[in-house]
């Protein structure tokens, strides 16, 4: 129910901003019957922006939205209006593609179960992304942690200093080219 609503809202977001590379969400069965070959292929091709409905029993979440960085705030506003709570923020270093991926997890308190994953990819050389602390105050620590581990600069963050790493840490241990 809320899943459908959120999905439509997110799709409208793509449509309204007229993102050219946005394609219609893949038919569900193609993603779900993905054997090993298809999965490998998916890894090779960069995934286009858009909303995909995932099989919950396999992936553990329902909606998987990849947004360009400039649509992030709008996408997070949509989940905020849907009364989702923030689960976590994390990053993944795709060093082969020279990109950093930031993953935002949202879920709901009620029994209308819907897990939403919002992900965005930014260039590895200049990792900058707007903060969402203005929408979710609880993103504060998650963003600081992500900055610690990946060196991502959350523009507009009120207090972007190391959280888990030492105060003077100038290294980012979860980057794949990190050498201790």
């Amino acid at each position: 129910m809320i899943c459908e609503k959120t999905k439509i809202a997110l799709e409208n977001l793509f449509a309204s901003k007229g993102v050219e590379e946005t394609i219609e969400p893949e038919p569900v069965q193609e993603v779900e019957t993905a054997g090993e070959n298809v999965d490998e292929k998916q890894q090779e091709l960069p995934r286009p922006d858009g909303v995909i409905e995932r099989d919950y029993s396999v992936h553990g979440y329902h909606l998987d939205a990849q947004v360009p960085p400039d649509l992030l705030i709008d996408a997070v506003k949509i989940v905020d209006e849907g009364e989702f709570f923030i689960e976590s923020i994390t990053g993944v270093d795709w060093i082969k593609e020279n990109q950093l991926e930031i993953i935002y997890d949202f879920s709901r308190y009620d029994f209308d179960l819907c897990r939403v994953v919002i992900r965005t990819r930014i260039a590895r050389d200049n990792p900058e992304i707007p903060t969402i602390t203005t929408i979710y105050a609880g993103a504060n620590w998650h963003e600081r942690e992500t900055r610690d581990f990946f060196g991502i600069n959350f523009v507009g963050h009120p207090h972007l200093v190391p959280l888990l790493l030492p105060e003077d840490a100038d290294f980012h241990p979860l980057l794949k080219d990190f050498k201790a």
């Binding site: 090993e36 396999v58 992936h59 553990g60 993953i103 997890d105």
Partner: peptide, 20 residues
């Protein structure tokens, strides 16, 4: 595990614990 992105939440004594 085959390539992909998986998430699982469980209720621990301290709350909702998730593994991605």
């Amino acid at each position: 595990p085959p390539a992909g992105d998986y998430y699982q939440a469980v209720e621990t004594a301290r709350g909702s614990f998730g593994v991605r």
